[in-house]
Design a protein around this nucleic acid. Structure first.
Length: 220
DNA sequence: GTACAGATTGAG
DNA sequence: TCAATCTGTACT
């Protein structure tokens, strides 16, 4: 397992968005927090990235950094490639982005779906605890639906605002690995991005990428 | 200060 | 089709 180095992220955003397909997102969770006072080994949640979207500010109307604006929320986008930009969407769902390019250029890649690295993934279900709402609710979710959307994958990996500005090249709780899986060019589908109808001509840019015929991509 | 849209989701 | 409900922006 090789953690992706800084150089991976500082390339052109569209290149990074495509190259992220087939890489593994790894989240180390302190199990003590999951099972109360019992001391257990940390657990590792792994998922293969199967869907991404590129956001290229300041020119991109769909980017939070359109026009070069800086707000408390989006300032993380201006960090050098390899950092996490995470924000709350619709007041409920966290959206995991990875910064790209050099410092000062507000470009990033939204991680839209993961294929959980869980054996027998078509059959098993897992519990998911929703702490976004005031009430904490556990429910069973089929593995196929566990991370098939930008909000859902953050829920599964227990990602929140505390991960904002996290350095994927140094962090001990989240990083990306190259497991040697190569996604052929012919397997990568480029399509319009989702949920940005307000972006005018930028709506039609084919900056959403996903692995062809992969059943873990988000539905729409 | 108010109003409202938004890189979403699951229930009905 | 709709409601959950936080953040940023455009207004009064």
């Amino acid at each position: 397992m090789i953690r992706l180095p800084r150089k991976f992220y500082t390339r052109k955003t569209l290149v990074v968005a495509k190259e992220l397909l087939g890489k593994y997102l790894v989240r180390r969770v302190d199990k003590k927090k999951l099972v109360g006072k019992l001391r257990r080994k940390d657990i590792f949640l792994r998922g293969k990235i199967v869907e991404t979207e590129a956001y290229i500010g300041p020119k991109d109307r769909a980017s939070h950094a359109f026009g070069g604006k800086i707000t408390p929320r989006n300032k993380t986008e201006y960090l050098i490639g390899g950092h996490i930009y995470i924000y709350l969407c619709y007041g409920m769902y966290w959206q995991l982005n990875i910064t790209t390019s050099r410092a000062g250029k507000p470009e990033c890649v939204l991680i839209r779906a993961l294929e959980p690295a869980i054996a027998d993934k078509h059959e098993f279900t897992t519990t998911l605890t929703n702490k976004n709402s005031r009430k904490s609710v556990s429910k069973f979710v089929k593995i196929r639906k566990l991370a098939s959307g930008p909000g859902k994958l953050c829920q599964w990996l227990k990602l929140n605002k505390s991960f904002n500005t996290e350095d994927l090249c140094k962090s001990k709780r989240i990083w990306l690995e190259n497991r040697g899986e190569k996604i052929k060019k012919s397997e990568i589908v480029a399509a319009k991005r989702i949920g940005i109808e307000y972006a005018g001509p930028w709506e039609d840019k084919p900056w959403r990428f996903y692995i062809r015929d992969n059943s873990f991509v988000s539905k729409k």
